[in-house]
Design a protein around this nucleic acid. Structure first.
Lengths: 155, 155
DNA sequence: CAAGCCTAGTTGAATGTTGTACTACTGGTA
DNA sequence: TACCAGTAGTACAACATTCAACTAGGCTTG
């Protein structure tokens, strides 16, 4: 059992800033979006993924993987969205186990209405607050972080 | 109503990387910590804040502000922690409305046992994955992001 | 083609979080 | 000292998330 390599003071400070900063950021984005459109950030993300997919349709497991959510969480989220009529589910024709989630026309309209507001909010709270270089550094760093976690998942 | 300034492709990619990267990161840290110590990341953070405070004691509202959690969430978290015997609550003597949350001796022991494991996990999943400069950039950027949100809170 | 194992997705219960309304105390003002 | 607006915290209900079964279909091997 090796002795602990503690974080030094500045590492500590930066890590803490990330922790509270992201917490504040996501809370604010969620709040902005929900106030303006009634949509939660999770739901919005589902719509974005669907909008980019062929036939605006994705398998549940693809959604789960892309959003980094548990399968069960996606099931519940999509069920709620289905009740609002913004997505629809149907059994996959190729794989009898699979379920495809498709965006409805109403879902598309909801997304189109929400997108400009959300983008403005992301700009106000993040993109226009950091420099282009900082954003690039952040993006690349977290790409690596995510990759590492995929290679070596918890549990 | 001005036309939307959309994100360009690289901004889009970096923003998405942050979104999924932090999601994966916090899920992994939470999982590591919970598996090793039975403590959730939230609860750990409460203990850390208390451990740094005079008398290892903080007002509920100070905890809420520091953790960027709602007052109600902190009430619940602290109640659960009190049931485990790692913190204790008492009415504030100076302000009759206030409640002070103090770390117990058991809480201190739990924190001391958990800290090395948690630090290792933070290193493995973040600190040792990015360069010192990247971490500094990230920390400073998010400090600014948080500041901006404080100046201009949602709702 | 049957057995066993894997993957996809759902279910329901336990747990956690949010939002609103409420109690209680404070501090300032008349 | 009586009022009133504001602050601290909690209670309860609605909602979201997690976790551990569970159903069902696919894939591989003998």
């Amino acid at each position: 059992m090796p002795t602990t390599r503690w974080l030094d003071e500045s590492q500590q400070r930066h890590w803490r800033a990330l922790l509270t900063g992201t917490s504040a950021l996501f809370a604010a984005l969620n709040h902005d979006l929900e106030a303006a459109t009634g949509l939660a950030l999770n739901e919005y993300e589902v719509l974005v993924r669907l909008s980019e997919a062929p036939d605006r349709t994705l398998r549940m497991s693809v959604l789960a993987e892309g959003l980094v959510h548990s399968r069960s969480r996606v099931t519940h989220t999509v069920r709620r969205m289905e009740e609002q009529g913004i997505v629809r589910r149907q059994r996959s024709s190729e794989d009898g186990r699979g379920v495809e989630c498709a965006m409805t026309e109403k879902g598309w309209e909801v997304l189109v209405a929400a997108a400009p507001l959300h983008v403005q909010s992301v700009r106000d709270r993040l993109v226009d607050v950091v420099s282009r270089e900082e954003l690039a550094t952040i993006g690349e760093a977290f790409e690596r972080v995510a990759e590492r976690i995929t290679e070596n998942p918890p549990s």
